[in-house]
Write a protein that binds this DNA or RNA. Structure first.
Lengths: 345, 345
DNA sequence: CTGAAAGCGCTTACAG
DNA sequence: CTGAAAGCGCTTACAG
């Protein structure tokens, strides 16, 4: 394997000139540059990362801490991991994946050994051990997600509160006065990442602010429970004419099938919005309006901020990306006249 | 940040003695060792990975090439990525995740820059560009999966042919003479990893060898199509009394629900086996017999082989792990007397 | 525009 | 049992 010395010898210059010619950090005469380029190409020279890491101040390596809980949705998780790696590559960074249960161990290790230049934290919980560690560690870090206490941190996430308001407004502006939210399975709110909670709370709050009734039901990995939840929601009084789903793809598919089976027409009888989804709701039956989760944009922005941190100390900031609404025809006005059902109770 | 020089100074020895004391690669007197350990602890010394990489012959870094296609099942994919990282950590290795579409670019990069000590290839297709590259690259590598041409390679995988035979035997031995296989969606056989093909082909071949009829149908992301496929399968002549499912979890759940809706009792009227599954079929309704995919065992073995390769050149080998069968009560004898249906056609 | 040299923080023969 | 020193392959002040 050719080294920088080989390239220097073949092109008749010093190794420093080779280094500068290849990095462009110092002007090099065109003739010299050409000879060096030719030699490097002939020899198939690739700078050795080990030498570069030690001499330079960068390893060009990021650590991504992305633990998988039982409650984690694998597709969404994968989408973010993929997006982070792709975003890092734009800056010529590679990504070390930290998955261990005792996630803080991995963080300490790659930090104290100076393996990574920076850290990306995925799937942030409200009360996250990794976040406390990050604050202590003297290493640039960015969180994708928002923990309970953001002091001293750089965070990027979708604005889930705004997304919830957007969903409510969309339905309220269409004239709906009673909604249902099909949320994540119960365990997610207990132990999972915190955005489902932020979304749910904001949605209920904003519905109340707009004088819209809203019933909240939880989904499940079990389709039977999903259908029961939907039945519960639709039995609410006054009967919901709008449904917001913020849950995994299988639960949304089950719901649509169940609604079809019950003969509930979308949007004639029920308007439906899919929220915080990473999957393609435009190919559902029927296609659904969606406020998508945006792994690529979120990760790009997170990595941009992290790279900024490398040059100049970045002040703590929580950047929330504005949600966007994509209409696919699943939202309309509520049924002209809802037939009042007999009062029980 | 304390360096090895600091530790040497504080403990009154040379840096080489510190290095040897900490690595254990040379005997060090107990007294000296104790002083060094004390100093290292006081100073919070952690060896610098950059220096270690350059001086030693190892980076303690593995590259994992795990591209995500549209056809990839995210949960299974995640399970393997997680298992590989966990397996690598047993040897104090960290894992760099390579996900790029042009996966060969990443492989060349980490190899020629000497960033990684070895490579793990996931999700191997029959005709995989990465495999050709691996053969050319002068770096230890192990594949999880089996490509069409295994010459010169070290591969580890579940023995899918044996798994298929096991499923057939289990049903045939119970007296079934007509089976159905619900496989992956069509695109998986066209472009995805190759084990579904190996499983399907072996199952059909072995069924024929045992004089068992077998109809093959494909699943889908769309539940409607899954139900149609099951209907097609059960309409086959002679009517199947055994069903093998080798497809994603949602399709298996849909199938069980559809069978329940059709009033098909398991195993009284239909025996069912779930194959190559990474999810827990014992909590399905009803619980299913399963021949699981084993990410942990497969990855552990793959990493063991890779580590062996580091010390002494390992001869090419294809290691297939024996499948195991877990009974959960979903397989029994076929219905005592199948009511012959009127001959159409 | 270019070079000689120091140095990044370790590991590991070579000596004693 | 321990130390002085070379060297891993680069980058980057320092000089000219």
């Amino acid at each position: 394997m050719a080294s920088i010395h080989d390239v220097a010898r073949v092109s008749g210059v010093s190794i420093s000139t080779v280094s500068y010619a290849l990095s462009g950090k110092r002007p090099v005469s065109e003739a010299t540059r050409a000879r060096i380029a030719k030699a490097a190409k002939e020899l198939g020279y690739q700078p050795n990362a080990r030498g570069r890491m030690l001499a330079g101040r960068r390893t060009q390596l990021l650590a991504l801490t992305a633990p998988l809980h039982a409650e984690t949705s694998a597709p969404a998780h994968m989408a973010f991991v993929l997006a982070v790696v792709t975003a890092a590559r734009r800056y010529d960074y590679d990504v070390i994946l930290l998955t261990e249960e005792e996630a803080t161990g991995g963080l300490s290790r790659v930090t104290s050994s100076k393996l990574a230049d920076g850290i990306v934290v995925l799937d942030v919980a409200i009360d996250d051990h990794r976040v406390d560690l990050i604050r202590d560690l003297d290493i640039p870090a960015v969180l994708i997600g928002v923990p309970g206490n953001t002091a001293g941190l750089v965070c990027v996430d979708l604005d889930f509160e705004a997304a919830a308001r957007l969903a409510v407004d969309q339905l309220a502006d269409n004239g709906h006065t009673s909604l249902a939210l099909l949320g994540e399975p119960h365990a997610v709110y207990e132990r999972g990442s915190n955005y489902p909670r932020r979304f749910r709370d904001a949605l209920l709050t904003h519905a109340a602010a707009r004088s819209v009734d809203c019933i909240f039901v939880e989904s499940s990995k079990n389709p039977v429970d999903v259908r029961a939840a939907i039945d519960t929601a639709l039995a609410a009084e006054p009967r919901p004419t709008g449904l917001v789903m913020q849950c995994a793809e299988p639960s949304q598919v089950t719901t649509l099938e169940h609604l079809a089976a019950r003969g509930v027409r979308i949007p004639a009888e029920l308007s439906v919005i899919s929220a915080a989804s990473t999957f393609d709701t435009s190919r559902f039956t029927p296609p659904l309006d969606v406020i998508p989760l945006v792994p690529a944009e979120t990760s790009d922005r997170a990595i941009d901020l992290l790279m900024t941190t490398f040059s100049k100390r970045h002040e703590p900031v929580v950047e929330l990306l504005a949600p966007r609404y994509f209409a696919n025809g699943s939202v309309g006005p509520p049924p002209a006249r809802s037939i009042p059902r007999p009062h029980t109770n």
